[in-house]
Write a protein that binds this DNA or RNA. Structure first.
Lengths: 220, 220
DNA sequence: TAGATTGTTAATCGATTAACAATC
DNA sequence: TAGATTGTTAATCGATTAACAATC
């Protein structure tokens, strides 16, 4: 089985998320590619290709076995495994990440937040202690955390990334709107949220017009 | 001048952001397509095409006039105009959005948050009052807010979207991991953050390997 | 069987990159 | 001038969609 492309991982995760929300505990034990395609507003062919890529076999006239799809995607992406993670920056955004219970269900366990603001140190956020930056190395090593989240202001992001890498972090989730220089074997995912705002502002300017089906969505 | 594509708007915004961070007040008054391309880790040809699309002319051997690029992008995307916005969901994520000062510099002015939790009502978050949901319609109309941000749990997102639309909101920034059904003339931007986490988890599983420069880019 | 849905190949479409002339 | 960089067309690449046979 080959390595999945980024877009495939994202779509597979959306299938997984949809099935948990809409099929878990339901009476239907199969789902068609057309149903998943409608939810994501993509072509059903794409869904069939994605499912084929992870080895799920469907059944003509019936669809794909729901439980099997859920289980296969989870195992292929790695949603079952437990991963310890740390958050640097105990502001509201860092707190939101720490508190969001959904992440726990994907196997991610936040063990600590770090912040240089003494007022935040010692507090608990989402059940996690807030430590000063100096403790980052020891805490990461003790918990063997592999995932680091950066929710500090843009100007501090590079320094934080370097600290995380030195402590042994392998993957970084960067919410600062900066590029990061890291060793090649460290994976970085940029979550430049303000980019989304720019797009919204642009569309506020545009004359109202008929929108494509792709823009409107239909939850089941 | 044609309508810009989503990907173009996102790249243009990144150029803008980069120039403000790295060139504003600096001595250099021009920037090359190669420099912008390196920052975004894309091809320089792409940058030249994007700038041509908004009508910025460069100078061979010199580059593009920095101030002109900044000004043109801002006006083309609409970053100069003032837009009132509201946030539904006064949890940590909603608070993070309200507090993030960067948005103000793009012309977005958050006028209020809404939450059904009585403990949150009456408080101030990022300088904005928190009201009960019942006040949403009047507040949106009074401020002529056109932009609505949804930071409530997934299960409540559709109901909130409907309420926002009824109040006259034209663009929705949806942080819940759900699709939304809205009239065709309402624009929705989905910010499914947990999708990013799924990608990170997947890469934690993968064998470490040399990464290409392109892989490090990862614009969302 | 008939018909719905999968699985897969082919065609299309769009985005990215390469090439290179224009030009300051 | 020489050379760096733009501007633009052509080529490539990949992703999406269409078509249709396979099959339960």
């Amino acid at each position: 089985m080959g390595r999945l492309k980024r877009s495939q991982v994202e779509r597979l995760f959306s299938y997984y998320h949809y099935l948990l929300q809409h099929h878990e505990g339901g009476e239907a034990n199969s789902v068609s590619s057309a149903e998943l395609a409608e939810f994501l507003e993509i072509d059903a062919t794409q869904v069939r290709k994605d499912l084929a890529a992870v080895g799920v076999r469907g059944c003509p006239r019936v669809g794909y076995p729901t439980k099997n799809v859920i289980r296969t995607i989870a195992s292929r992406i790695g949603l079952g495994a437990k991963h310890n993670a740390v958050i640097v920056g105990a502001g509201r955004l860092g707190g939101a990440v720490a508190e969001y219970s959904g992440f726990t269900s994907y196997g991610v366990n936040f063990v600590a937040l770090f912040d240089d603001d003494p007022h935040k140190q010692g507090a608990e956020v989402g059940g996690c202690p807030v430590y000063p930056m100096g403790k980052l190395g020891p805490v990461v090593r003790r918990h063997q955390a592999k995932l680091g989240v950066i929710t500090v202001p843009d100007t501090a992001a590079q320094e934080v990334a370097t600290t995380l890498v030195e402590a042994g972090i392998q993957s970084i989730w960067n919410f600062a709107h900066t590029q990061l220089t890291v060793p090649r074997d460290v994976w970085v995912r940029h979550e430049h949220i303000s980019t989304g705002l720019a797009e919204l502002i642009y569309h506020l300017k545009q004359p109202r017009r008929r929108r494509t089906a792709a823009a409107a969505a239909a939850p089941r």
